[in-house]
Design a protein around this nucleic acid. Structure first.
Lengths: 223, 223, 223, 223
DNA sequence: CATGAATGAGGTTTCATTCAT
DNA sequence: TATGAATGAAACCTCATTCAT
């Protein structure tokens, strides 16, 4: 997937209800609540009764909007595996700043967004392996899209003479995993993980910018 | 936890058998097979029958060696969440080389070990949240131990004048997550993840060493 | 039950509506549609939603005309388990013909009617066992009435010296089951049941008339 | 299917158990008990708990021997839809008697067998429509086999100069439906169906033999 | 009167665990 | 010790019925 284009919409799930508007809203709501409940108990241990309770509905009522428990996985993928569109929009608001500044700001923004969607990150990390082939492809495509967003900034920085990067894909990958593992390790290590988001963002950004910065060192040393 | 000391042994599981030796072997074997089977279907979807089949035993026979299905999680933690002892032994074989070389070698070794225990990495990533408090603490301690192993090298490098690191914990953390995400993303992204282990190791090591290298740049520039 | 009298009307079902005329029409309509839908999926597997769809109504609307799903069984019995009145009317139109001709014509007419109400025959065959005692009695009475209709013709034929029948009940019974099994086996055997209705009617009528015909054989032989 | 050859065995159902011997016995037993329970409540209304109770087993235990509730239908077909082999064996024990006597005896035997398997007859009549295509084919084949058994006797009777039959298939069909409807109407009409099996057999046999008997009547009349 | 969203009882099925052999 | 048949609790899911709109 090349950056910027909209991700294909996934297939619809079977429902009993006919009111498209209502069904759409409820599906979104169910996916939203379910992904939170999955956080605590995982997909298998979470019962439809649990999900119903989280949604304020009787278990049977869920089936007006979804076809099966498995379909909830699908809904979550469609709703919560966004590509890089939001980041591209954010980038366009930054105005006329250096590529270094663009990268710094986008990283910070990305870290904040990921941090605020802990449930989703945990969910995909844990349950990703049980997704249907099609849903997995969708999620992978959304990740690849976000990765390519950061690569694009890196390449533009190289062209602008600001960056020096031997492997843009790997650096973009590192940005992604810094964000992802922030969530995962915060969840897993709990109080043994002592960074605040701001500290973590600042330190990792410093390391990243070091990595991509032009080095005059050797030239200087010669002098 | 400070590096070097042995991790506390976890509590024993209840068994029917009296032959301690045999029971110990079988437990290890069951944990070993189970963690492989969990890879495909996850903990919940894996039945005791599945595990029995993987072990060449009848499902009832498993209960001579384990107390419950949940106990298998415990066994896996005890068996497969090693601290840094193996790495310390490896380090001691390297002889008289620079700290930079030590770090480079230990990273490569660490990446190889992690790569060869994909099942275990996937398992802890996916099922970690369902561990008993005690087991989770054990696993966390083993990770902290390994992290402190790398921190130790970094600190020694700083003392030796080879490294310049503002946040040793974070750099050690990065080494750990580079290794961990190598496995996770290889599993999740499949053929869209195109690095070989050697390429990945080399590139990430270069970035890491850049990060910790002494910079004369700024000083020189001032001149 | 002796032939000719009207079958007792079954008890009314509870409804919400007050417009007796409309309610009566709708009830008939619902029974008519339902019996068709039951053909495919049987009573239990047919949902109120299915029946509603077949009637062009929302499932909730059905309950303005019926009291429960079970009531539909009752309605079908009342509407579609007719006695022999229609056959008596038909018989009265035949004019002045021999009893043999009356029997032949009535059998053909009966077979045609039964053939055109396959759904109903299949329904009673399959679901008869689950009818309420009262409804079952009603259906049985309607069958007995039809059987007695044919018996009446046979007895008249005997009195007229045209027939010689040792067991009128059994011959009448055979006429009934020839018609009924025509439908049932056509449905069950499908393309392995190769008779057309006309062939089947002709052949079975021949056998029946053989059975009831006066035999002069022995007398002739004496000559 | 031509007479005499063994009906193909239907596909096996999935089971948890490995003991072929035990599984075979239990399957037979379950089918046998289930078909009785279906008699009262029909397939859909019969719960697995009901079937388990009838078998003296817990509901879960049934699934060691069957794959699903639907599979019970399959088992019943395989176990209780016999071809004509038993009748052919019976015929071979009759010794040297006329074809008329053979037919009479076989009809009586057939009626007795059918009468003693009421449950099965009712079952196939009621639930036949929901059988899998393959199972339905199997049952139909068994019926066709039995029909062809009677046709064979009729044809041999014609060759022997004992019978005169215009449509052997239809006469054989009538024998079958006389037997089948004996059960069905006894169940449905209950106390309004007043024949005993012996009366019913005798009367229907008389009618059948009349139908197939050589008629000298017309020849005599010509004289 | 008509609708269809909501309910929740009850069905089939799975599977960890036990225990007689 | 090893087995695997048996258990029964609990899961997902369906659908007759109700009732606010």
């Amino acid at each position: 997937m090349t950056g910027g284009q909209t991700l294909r919409s996934a297939t619809e799930v079977r429902t009993y209800s006919n009111d498209k508007e209502l069904v759409g809203q409820r599906r979104y709501y169910i996916a939203e609540q379910a992904v939170k409940v999955f956080q605590d108990k995982g997909y298998e241990r979470t019962t439809m009764r649990d999900i119903g309770k989280a949604c304020g509905m009787a278990p049977g009522s869920l089936y007006h909007y979804i076809g099966s428990k498995q379909d909830i996985l699908h809904l979550i993928c469609v709703r919560f595996a966004p590509g890089a569109d939001a980041y591209r929009r954010y980038l366009s608001t930054l105005g006329d700043v250096s590529k270094t500044e663009q990268l710094r700001k986008c990283i910070a923004y990305y870290f904040r967004v990921i941090d605020s969607s802990r449930h989703v990150v945990s969910f995909f990390n844990r349950e990703g392996y049980r997704l249907a082939e099609e849903d997995r492809d969708y999620v992978v495509a959304s990740e690849v899209d976000r990765q390519s967003f950061f690569e694009q900034i890196l390449r533009e920085g190289i062209e602008a003479g600001e960056f020096q990067v031997s492997n843009t894909a790997l650096v973009a990958y590192n940005i992604m995993i810094y964000a992802q593992t922030w969530v995962l390790r915060k969840v897993f290590l709990r109080n043994r993980f002592t960074f605040t988001l701001e500290e973590y963002t600042e330190e990792q950004t410093r390391i990243l910018l070091d990595t991509v910065a032009i080095r005059n060192c050797h030239v200087d040393k010669i002098e």
